[in-house]
Write a protein that binds this DNA or RNA. Structure first.
Lengths: 154, 154
DNA sequence: CCATAATAGTTGTGTGAGCAACTAGATTGC
DNA sequence: GCAATCTAGTTGCTCACACAACTATTATGG
C-alpha cells in the first residue's frame, strides 16, 4: 500500500482508488436510492429521511434543530424541507411546552402510513446496492474506518 | 456481523454503522475540503476538480462530455461550471477538429498556475482528513469494497 | 443522396440548499 | 428586575445543479 507524503504533488494509485472510490460509490448509491424512492413513491430521499428519523424518535417528534443536525442539513434547509412535508400532510409543527421559541416537527398518521409503504423498498434498495455486495469482513472494515475518521478535525 | 434480510423493516446496528458512517464521513470530508479550498484559494472544489482533470489529460484538454462523466456532473451543469472557469480565465473552449459539434475544454496557462498553488494544500487536506487516519489495512479494505460496489445495477 | 435518427453541447426553467439578516423568546449579570 | 446577550427558528437572497427543450452537426438506411 503506497502512501504519499505531505507536500507531494500527487496521490498514489492506491490512495486514488480508496478516495475516488468513495466519492463514486457514495454518489452512485445516493442517486440510485433517491431516484428509486422518487419513482416508486414520489418521495425524495431527503423527505424520506425526515419521516424515518421522526418515526424512530420518542413520541414521533423531534426539535427542528436536532433534526437538522441528524440529517446533516442547515437549519434553513430543514425549515423548508419541513414546510414541504407539512404541505403534504406528513408532518406537523407542534409548539414546545418548555421553550416557546422551539418547535417540534411531528410525524402525522398519514406520514407514518407513507413511510410504512416506502420503507421496505428503500431498505431493500440499500441492501441490494450496498450490503449484499459486501462481505462481513468488508462491512466490519468500513465501520472501523468510519470510526477512525469520526474523530475529526476542522 | 448481523445482517438483515430482504423485506425486513429495519437494518441491524452493524449495517447502520457501515451505511450511515459512509454518509457522514463523505459529507464531513467534502464540506471540509471545499471550505478549505474556498478559504485559502477562493476556489470551489468543483472548479478545482475541473482544473485537475484537465491538467492531467493529454494536451491539457478534454471533451465536454467526457469531463462531465468524470466529474459525475450533468452536461448542463458542466456547461455552466466551465462558463465560470472561462470567465476566470482558467479554462478556454476550443473547437474539435474532427467533430464540429464537439468542444474541448482546455486549461490555460493561468489555470495551471492556479492549480499549482491550490493542489498541494488540497492534497494535504485529503491526506490529513482521510489517509492519515486510516491504516494500510483500512485503505486496502476500502478499495476492495469500492471495487465490489462498482459492479453496479440500476 | 436525402430523410430520419442519433449525438454534442447550450439554454430555459425550476428546485433544493446555504448564508446572512431578522424575530421572538430565554438566559445572564449587575 | 431589567439591559445585554444568546438561542430557536424563519425569511430574503443567491447559487449550483438537474431536466427538458432546443440548435447544430453527424451517422444511418432505403
Amino acid at each position: 500500500m503506497k502512501r504519499t507524503q505531505h507536500g507531494e504533488e500527487r496521490l498514489s494509485e492506491d490512495e486514488i482508488a480508496a478516495w475516488k472510490g468513495m466519492l463514486r460509490a457514495h454518489r452512485d448509491l445516493v442517486v440510485s436510492l433517491d431516484s428509486q424512492l422518487e419513482r416508486e413513491h414520489s418521495l425524495p430521499l431527503s423527505s424520506y429521511e425526515v419521516l424515518m428519523v421522526l418515526a424512530d424518535s420518542p413520541g414521533g417528534r423531534a426539535r427542528m434543530g436536532e433534526l437538522a443536525d441528524q440529517l446533516l442539513l442547515s437549519r434553513s434547509g430543514l425549515t423548508r424541507l419541513v414546510d414541504r412535508l407539512v404541505r403534504q400532510g406528513w408532518v406537523e409543527r407542534k409548539p414546545c411546552e418548555d421553550d416557546a421559541r422551539g418547535l417540534y416537527a411531528a410525524i402525522t398518521r398519514s406520514g407514518r402510513a407513507k413511510l410504512k409503504k416506502a420503507r421496505p423498498a428503500h431498505l431493500d434498495g440499500v441492501r441490494e446496492g450496498f450490503f449484499s455486495k459486501l462481505s462481513d469482513a468488508d462491512l466490519a472494515a468500513l465501520s472501523r474506518a468510519w470510526g477512525r475518521l469520526g474523530r475529526a478535525v476542522t
